[in-house]
């Protein structure tokens, strides 16, 4: 009963916040609602016994990505953005497409059959601790994807510098 209540609170607030994020006129307000949204997602992860994921959700998403968004917003001039209409003229078409997609996905969800359970039961994770279990798997079986992720981040660093750099005149 209590767990359903908790889930209901988190689900309701997450849906409300995501609607608020996409409907605000001022992008700064959207970023602020997004911050609250990320914290609630992290709460949901804690609820699913994924402490490490909850921690990196807050550290990376709320701490790094949102701050980046906020910096860029403050670099841009948003004066005339506040005057134009929020949605495009044909937004009911978008709503229709989205609602149709939602109906399709929800009708598929009902017929989901779970596969066989793996070895990472709650007792196993409790004994091993979540971060250790995750780290062992990440640095053994998933070492190659991990290295690729580091290359992706390197590309992001170089790409961001190259793209945002002001063009020099002597070219």
């Amino acid at each position: 009963m209590l767990s359903e209540l908790f889930f209901g609170y988190f689900a309701a607030v997450i849906i409300l916040l995501s609607v608020l994020v996409i409907t605000r006129r001022n992008p700064v307000h959207s970023v602020m609602w997004m911050l609250l949204f990320f914290f609630h997602i992290a709460g949901l992860y804690l609820f699913l016994n994924a402490e490490f994921i909850a921690a990196i959700q807050i550290i990376v998403y709320a701490g790094a990505i949102l701050v980046l968004f906020l910096f860029v917003l403050l670099l841009l001039n948003l004066r005339e953005e506040l005057k134009v209409k929020r949605f495009i003229g044909t937004w009911p078409a978008g709503l229709f497409v989205t609602a149709a997609l939602l109906v399709i996905v929800l009708s598929v969800v009902k017929s989901f059959v779970p596969g066989p359970a793996g070895k990472y039961s709650i007792e196993f994770i409790k004994q091993e601790t979540h971060t250790k279990a995750l780290g062992k798997l990440l640095y053994t079986d998933y070492l190659f994807p991990f290295e690729i992720a580091s290359i992706v981040l390197l590309v992001a660093i170089i790409g961001a510098i190259v793209l945002a750099k002001r063009k020099t005149r002597s070219k």
């Binding site: 994924a50 490490f52 994921i53 990196i56 959700q57 990376v60 998403y61 790094a64 990505i65 779970p114 596969g115 359970a117 793996g118 070895k119 990472y120 039961s121 709650i122 279990a133 995750l134 798997l137 990440l138 998933y142 994807p145 992720a149 992706v152 981040l153 590309v155 992001a156």
Partner: peptide, 19 residues
């Protein structure tokens, strides 16, 4: 499903989202 692979994938998704 008591399997850790989903969370590994989440870590990679967060990495790609940051990039």
């Amino acid at each position: 499903l008591q399997d850790m692979r989903g969370q590994i994938l989440v870590i990679f998704i967060i990495t790609v989202a940051a990039a």
